[in-house]
Amino acid sequence: MHGSFALQVGFSASPEQVFAAFADPGLRTRWFRLPGSSKNATHALDFRVGGSEVAANLFVSGDIEERLEYRSRFHDIVPDRRIVYVYEAHVDGLRRWVSLVTVELAAEGAGSRLDWTEQYAYLVLSGDGGQDTAHLRGGTRLLLNGLSAVVEPERYRGLAKIRPGGA
C-alpha cells in the first residue's frame, strides 16, 4: 500500500531556527524520539547530504513489547530552506514502511512556515492498512508538535502546569 500526505505548520521562530532544530543533534534529540523509555533509546545524526540518522528504542505497553528502529539518508539539504530524505521504519527487525520526506521552510510574517510532504510505501500492513496510515500521520503530527515545543518554548511553558479538572 502506498500514498502520501502533507502537513503545514506555522512558527513564530525564523526558518533558520527551525532548520537548526533539524541539523543540531542536541536540538534534534529534544523533539525527535521513538516511543518508549529514554533509558533504552539510541540516536545518531550525521546531518549532511549522504549522511544518515539512526534511532532505536524499546517500546513497552502492558504485555506489548516492540523493538523500534528508524534509519534515514539525507539526499538534499539547502540550509534554512529544504531537507529531502528517505527513511525506513522497522518493528521487531521487520521493515514495515519506507518514506520519502520533503521539508520546506519559508519566511512568513515575523516567523516561518514548514511544509512537510511524505510519500510512503507500506511493505507490511496491520489488517487493511487503515490503522497504519492513521498512525503514520498522527505520529508525524506529534513529531511536529515536539518541534514546535523546541523552537517556540514560550508557547509551551505554562502547559505543564495545567492539571486535569482545572485543579
Rank of each mutant, 00 (worst) to 15 (best):
G3Q: 11
G3C: 09
G3R: 09
S4T: 15
F5T: 03
F5A: 03
A6Q: 14
A6G: 13
Q8I: 08
V9R: 15
A13F: 10
P15K: 03
P15E: 06
Q17S: 12
V18P: 05
A20S: 14
A20F: 04
A21N: 04
A21V: 04
F22M: 05
D24N: 12
D24Y: 01
D24L: 01
L27C: 01
R28D: 00
R30V: 00
R30Q: 14
R30A: 06
R30P: 01
W31G: 03
F32Y: 09
L34Y: 02
L34F: 03
K39T: 13
K39W: 01
K39E: 14
N40A: 13
A41Y: 04
A41F: 03
T42H: 13
T42P: 05
T42L: 10
H43I: 03
H43R: 06
A44K: 13
A44D: 13
L45D: 01
L45A: 03
L45K: 00
D46R: 11
D46W: 06
F47W: 01
E53P: 00
A55S: 14
A55R: 01
A56I: 09
N57H: 05
N57T: 08
L58K: 07
L58E: 08
L58T: 11
F59V: 02
S61W: 01
S61E: 12
G62A: 11
D63L: 03
E65L: 10
E65D: 08
E65G: 13
E66M: 13
Y70L: 09
Y70N: 11
R71Y: 03
R71M: 10
S72A: 15
F74S: 05
H75D: 13
I77V: 15
P79C: 07
D80L: 06
D80K: 10
R82A: 05
R82D: 02
I83P: 01
V84M: 03
Y85G: 02
Y85V: 05
Y87S: 06
V91W: 04
G93V: 02
G93H: 00
L94A: 15
W97Q: 14
W97T: 13
W97N: 15
W97H: 15
V98L: 15
V98F: 05
V101Y: 08
T102A: 14
E104W: 02
A107D: 07
E108L: 11
E108W: 03
E108T: 07
G109E: 10
A110T: 12
A110R: 13
S112E: 10
S112N: 12
D115G: 09
W116D: 10
W116I: 13
W116G: 10
W116Q: 10
Y120H: 12
A121E: 15
A121H: 15
L125R: 14
S126P: 00
S126R: 09
D128W: 07
D128P: 04
Q131F: 03
Q131C: 01
D132C: 06
D132I: 10
D132G: 02
T133M: 06
T133P: 01
A134S: 06
H135N: 12
H135P: 00
L136C: 07
T140I: 03
L142Q: 11
L144A: 04
S148N: 02
S148M: 09
A149M: 12
A149L: 05
V150F: 01
V151L: 08
E152G: 08
E152C: 08
P153L: 12
R155V: 09
R157G: 00
G158P: 05
L159M: 12
K161H: 14
I162F: 07
I162D: 00
R163D: 01
G165S: 09
G166T: 09
G166S: 08
A167W: 10
